[in-house]
Design a protein around this nucleic acid. Structure first.
Length: 336
DNA sequence: GTTGAGCGA
């Protein structure tokens, strides 16, 4: 499934099974296994140069991860080495596609990169109608990253809307891309020209842990709805940003920042860990042990007392507060 | 316009 389509990607290696453990991905091959550049003399290997797309792949940074003990050598087939780890996610999801944006259109969009392996537009099996999204498979993860960076949020050819790209999610078990939690803020009052990228860079300039940003758009028109979200990898930066960036300009207008309501997976309320903040944005003395949870997605008729009722069964409560006019609240426990 | 949405025949 993850094998590249025949005829699209040049053959990688001779099919002869290797009797040696392959070097783990993301690790500099040890000197005796520089199979890419210099086949060891004891093995009959093809000496033809690697395909161009493999040469373009940047050398992954060496990772100081502890060396895993090699598994016991068994008589079993070991897949031929590839220029990129097959477990890597190299596919991008693309959304907001109009019905006329079919495969050949997508090919045209990215053909100049020379790194597209396949494109696919998803259609309804019964009606044949385009479902409005598709997938683009790239030769390497690095290429996918590049394309995500450079195209996402830019104008789609022959249209008035921007590319909406994201990593494709693969089946369970292969989800190794980024399992660290996101700390998201809501950003409102955005000018209409603010794209995902502009929003992201506005924050990344101050907070290096920014993972990404998204401006919410109308599906049919592609126009911004004037608000969006910024995801941080670091909770402290998220909280600092809420205080420090509120009212700062993004493009031509000052931003209005608030906590992001948790996306609703099903119905009902979601609870997420949070902390009280003092005015400096530090995790204040009000909650030194971080025993507060944030409660989002509340109905407008939910009161402090109601929250207190709901949560008292879980422990001794110190403080329950729904800020006026908010659809969220804070519940602080005496202990964790 | 002010708390997202879309993951494969």
């Amino acid at each position: 499934m993850m094998q590249p389509a025949p005829g699209v990607v040049p053959p990688s290696m001779p099919p002869a099974p290797m009797d040696q453990q392959q070097p783990p991905q993301y690790q500099q091959p040890p000197p005796q296994q520089q199979w890419m550049m210099m086949p060891p003399p004891q093995q009959q290997q093809q000496t033809q140069p690697p395909p161009a797309w493999a040469q373009q792949a940047p050398v992954p940074p060496p990772q100081p991860q502890p060396q895993m003990a090699p598994p016991p050598q068994q008589q079993q087939y070991v897949a031929a080495p590839q220029a990129s780890n097959p477990d890597e996610i190299r596919s991008l999801w693309i959304g907001d596609l109009q019905p006329w944006m079919e495969e050949n259109y997508l090919w045209g969009c990215f053909s100049q990169t020379g790194e597209v392996v396949s494109v696919k537009v998803i259609r309804n099996k019964q009606t044949g109608q385009c479902e409005g999204y598709g997938f683009i498979e790239l030769a390497t993860r690095a290429a996918a990253e590049r394309i995500l960076q450079t195209y996402n949020g830019t104008l789609m050819p022959n249209s008035e809307q921007n590319f909406r790209l994201n990593w494709a999610t693969l089946g369970a078990g292969e989800r190794r891309a980024d399992d660290t939690p996101d700390y998201t803020i809501f950003v409102g009052d955005l000018a209409s020209d603010v794209t995902d990228y502009v929003l992201q860079e506005t924050f990344r300039a101050h907070y290096p842990s920014v993972k990404g940003a998204k401006v919410v758009t109308d599906r049919t028109t592609g126009r911004s709805k004037g608000y969006g979200f910024v995801r941080f990898g670091d909770e402290g930066e998220q909280m600092r940003a809420m205080n420090e960036m509120n009212g700062m300009f993004c493009s031509t207008r000052p931003m209005r920042i608030g906590p992001a309501a948790t996306k609703k997976p099903v119905g009902g309320q979601q609870f997420q860990k949070a902390s009280f903040q003092n005015t400096q944005g530090n995790q204040g003395e009000s909650d030194p042990n971080n025993t507060t949870i944030f409660v989002g997605g509340l109905d407008s008729n939910v009161t402090d007392d109601y929250l207190r009722q709901v949560f008292s069964q879980y422990g001794e409560l110190v403080h329950v507060k729904i800020p006026v006019g908010k659809r969220c609240g804070f519940v602080q426990f005496a202990n964790r």
